[in-house]
Amino acid sequence: MVSQFGSLGYTIMGKTADLTVFWTTIIDTLHKEGKPQTSTAKEAGCSQSAVSKHVNRKLSGRKKCGRKKCTTNRENRSLMRIVKQNPFKNLSKLHKEWTEAGVKASRATTHRHVKEFGYSCRIPLVKPLLNHRQRQRCLTWAKEKKNWTVAQWSKVLFSDEIKFCISFGNQGPRVWRKGGEAHNPSCLKFSVKFPQSVMIWGAMSSAGVGPLCFLKTKVTAPVYQEILEHFMLPSADQLFEDADFIFQQDLAPAHTAKSTKTWLNDHGVGVLDWPANPPDLNAIENLWGIVKRKMRNKRPKNADDLKATVKETWASIPPQQCHKLITSMPC
Results as ranks from 00 to 15, higher is better:
Leu8Pro: 05
Pro195Trp: 12
Leu281Met: 13
Phe158Leu: 00
Gly202Lys: 01
Leu157Lys: 00
Asn286Thr: 01
Val310Leu: 08
Arg74Cys: 04
Cys165Ile: 07
Asn147Gly: 02
Cys138Asn: 13
Leu94Pro: 02
Lys145Ile: 11
Ser191Val: 15
Arg133Val: 09
Glu285Ile: 10
Gln249Tyr: 05
Asp244Cys: 10
Met295Thr: 08
Leu125Val: 12
Asn131Lys: 01
Thr25Gly: 02
Lys298Ser: 13
Ile284Leu: 04
Lys258Phe: 14
Asn302Pro: 05
Leu239Met: 06
Phe240Thr: 03
Phe240Ala: 00
Glu97Gln: 13
Lys145Pro: 00
Glu33Tyr: 13
Lys42Gly: 07
Trp141Met: 06
Arg74Val: 14
Leu215Gln: 05
Lys145Asn: 13
Trp201Gly: 01
Tyr224Val: 00
Gln238Met: 11
Asn90Ile: 04
Ser259His: 10
Glu241Met: 08
Asp237Leu: 13
Val51Gly: 04
Lys143Pro: 01
Ser92Arg: 08
Gly9Trp: 07
Ser7Asn: 10
Lys143Ala: 14
Met329Ser: 04
Arg67Phe: 13
Ile246Pro: 01
Ile123Trp: 12
Tyr224Ala: 01
Ser167Val: 11
Gln238Glu: 12
Val55Ala: 10
Glu181His: 08
Asp160Tyr: 03
Ala221Val: 04
Pro300Tyr: 02
Asn56Ile: 14
Ala101Arg: 15
Val223Ile: 14
Arg74His: 15
Thr11His: 15
Lys294Pro: 01
Lys63Trp: 15
Gln48Val: 10
Lys216Ser: 15
Ser154Met: 05
Trp98Ser: 01
Gly34Glu: 11
Val271Ser: 00
Gly210His: 03
Pro275Gln: 02
Gln85Arg: 15
His31Arg: 03
Pro278Ile: 09
Glu100Phe: 14
Thr217Ala: 13
Gly45Phe: 06
Glu181Asp: 06
Lys89Tyr: 04
Gln152Leu: 08
Val150Arg: 03
His255Ser: 06
Asp305Trp: 11
Lys69Glu: 10
Ala236Asn: 03
Leu8Asp: 07
Thr40His: 02
Asn286Cys: 04
Lys58Gln: 08
Leu264Ile: 05
Cys322Phe: 02
Pro234Thr: 04
Arg293Val: 08
